[in-house]
């Protein structure tokens, strides 16, 4: 029957479409990284240089730090490139990663409404800034997603002796960009990495109201997923990427990257 044949044909063409998907390139690695690095545009700047030099394509899956580390733990990435030092060290200690290397740092800033209702601008240090927000019960938008930024924020609250809760504390449970979109709407204070902030366009009334305290430095580490735990990990190519990123050349490429004339990331490889 003609219609029966049609069914078989459509099924076959479906399979053919799948088969026609480009053969997976042999020389690529998967890097689980954070939304902040991807959103800032850093990868678009440095990865072509690395690929040109080595022929290795880097496929970046950008997730929150917690999710990126989980991706590494499950063996779904060859390299993780994140910013949550304590969790990274745990990741290595648990045997999921080979070794952690310093790559670079950027810093966190506190952004908030221009009229600064909690007078955060007057704060002497980051702890005082957080205390001021909590005391004024001024709206604060938190990532609330177990990301590196969220962990840094939690550390600041702990240092200030505040357990943030109440109607003023908005846990968005989403990425940095979405959280900034929320903060711009409310408007609310928020802790953000400078990179995301500089490339973020939908600022509304928000401005940087606090910056510069050394506790706000945000170090990035890079770790090869342990091939002893996941045999399929492309250790050689993954290590090549780590070596390049921490080399003089890679470090220079990171320092070169600017948004609106401002340098976002500061090399820190030993």
């Amino acid at each position: 029957m003609t219609h029966a044949r049609r069914f078989i044909l459509s099924a076959a063409s479906g399979l053919a479409l799948i088969a026609a998907l480009p053969a997976t390139a042999q020389d690529f690695i998967t890097v689980a990284s954070t939304t902040s690095t991807e959103n800032s545009g850093l990868f678009g700047h440095i990865l072509p240089m690395f690929q040109e030099e080595t022929g290795i394509e880097v496929r970046v899956v950008s997730q929150g730090t917690g999710q990126a580390l989980e991706t590494g733990r499950r063996g779904d990435a060859d390299v993780v490139f994140v910013h949550a030092r304590a969790q990274e060290e745990q990741f290595v200690a648990d045997g999921y990663g080979v070794q952690r290397f310093d790559v670079m740092y950027n810093d966190f800033v506190i952004v908030g409404p221009g009229d600064d209702p909690a007078e955060v601008r007057m704060a002497a240090d980051a702890t005082a800034a957080m205390t001021a927000i909590a005391v004024a019960e001024a709206a604060f938008a938190s990532r609330g997603d177990d990301s590196g930024t969220h962990v840094a924020e939690a550390n600041l609250w702990a240092a200030a002796g505040v357990a943030p809760a109440g109607r003023w504390y908005l846990s968005t449970g989403s990425g940095m960009g979405a959280t900034l979109n929320t903060a711009a709407q409310v408007p609310a204070y928020a802790l953000t990495d400078r990179g995301t902030w500089l490339s973020f366009e939908n600022r509304g009334d928000l401005e940087i109201v606090f910056e510069g305290d050394p506790v706000l430095f945000n170090p990035y580490g890079i770790i090869l997923v342990n091939p002893e735990r996941h045999a399929h990990v492309k250790a050689e190519q993954g290590q090549a990427f780590i070596d390049w990123v921490t080399s003089d050349e890679g470090q220079a490429a990171i320092a070169d990257f600017t948004v609106g004339g401002e340098q976002l990331f500061f090399p820190s490889a030993a």
């Binding site: 939304t35 991807e38 959103n39 990425g175 940095m176 960009g177 979405a178 900034l180 979109n181 995301t196 490339s199 973020f200 366009e201 939908n202 600022r203």
Partner: peptide, 10 residues
Amino acid sequence: TLETARGQLG
């Protein structure tokens, strides 16, 4: 989703 997260709403 990505462009929204980057604040590139346009």
